[in-house]
């Protein structure tokens, strides 16, 4: 089906969780719960020690997963074992991709991209790899037949936008606001502006908006503003973190995740509802 194909006639729901947070077994159950709850693509984080694009919530998830022993090799095993319908996109930082060596001692991004593709990963999002540095990664992804998703920021000008769209595949990750990841209580007005700018490019990829989306209502408004999908990370990680701190049984936390996934997916679908426009909520 592929990553781009997962964006079908309905708006897509793209959740993020860090693999191994708070343990490998629990994390597997959580990712499968998101799939059950209606995920169309799953961004599965491979934790890196210096997550410079992440706010406190996802930093916490990364720290828990690292403490639980997650490594790039264990991540590949995790991808092989986890049972989901939705395609998996690996979200991580470039140093982990760059350092990985396989038995052929192939250097650069090739080894990890191929190993991940073999394990079942269908795409990558690499927040610290701008278009200037993405050449080797793009070639490795082409070679392995997987997607490389580019991030578009509110600060991205038209010249950069054109270059980003040229090298991006799968979908475009539209960063809804300045700053780092983290759930918010409102939706940035700059999202609509960025989406409108993207609209000018013909045959553009699906546009998935992330950074700050917490509720089904947020998801609905984002889709109404022109998004093809919504990416949600911190709000889901909060559920994992709260369950972990409270010592709740894994199946209970998984059910909560599936419920929130369902709310977000339903909200996104409602955003495409052709009925009379609802009055603006605040």
């Amino acid at each position: 089906m592929g990553v781009e194909g997962a964006f079908g006639s309905e708006p897509a729901f793209v959740p993020y969780l860090a693999a191994g947070d708070p343990s490998v077994e629990a994390s597997k159950a959580y990712v499968e719960a998101l799939d059950r709850g209606g995920a169309d693509v799953i961004e599965l984080g491979l934790p890196f020690s210096e997550p410079i694009a992440e706010g406190p919530t996802i930093q916490g998830a990364v720290a828990r997963a690292l403490r639980a022993g997650m490594t790039p090799r264990r991540y590949l095993g995790f991808v092989r074992d986890v049972d989901t319908e939705a395609p998996l996109v690996c979200m991580t930082y470039y140093n982990l991709i760059y350092q990985f060596r396989d038995e052929t001692e192939r250097g650069g991004p090739d080894a990890f991209v191929h190993a991940a593709a073999d394990a079942g990963v269908e795409g990558f999002v690499v927040p610290d790899l701008p278009v200037e540095e993405a050449g080797p990664m793009r070639r490795a992804c082409d070679d392995a037949g997987v997607d490389l998703v580019s991030i578009v920021a509110p600060t991205t000008g038209d010249g950069r936008l054109r270059r980003l769209l040229e090298i991006s595949s799968g979908y475009v990750y539209v960063q809804a606001r300045l700053g780092v990841t983290g759930a918010r209580d409102d939706v940035s007005g700059r999202t609509a502006e960025t989406l409108a700018r993207l609209q000018q490019y013909e045959a553009a990829l699906p546009k998935a908006v992330g950074f700050g989306i917490r509720t089904g209502d947020h998801a609905e408004r984002i889709v109404r503003a022109g998004a093809d999908g919504v990416i949600v990370g911190s709000a889901l990680v909060d559920v994992v973190a709260d369950g972990h701190e409270a010592g709740d049984p894994v199946p209970d936390v998984a059910d909560r995740l599936a419920d929130l996934a369902d709310e977000l997916k339903t909200g996104a679908v409602r955003g495409r509802d052709p009925g009379p426009a609802e009055p603006e909520r605040n």
Binding site: A53, Y94, D128, I151
Partner: peptide, 8 residues
């Protein structure tokens, strides 16, 4: 090697 938001 930085996030896109910083590149401009």
């Amino acid at each position: 090697y930085v996030p896109e938001v910083l590149m401009p």
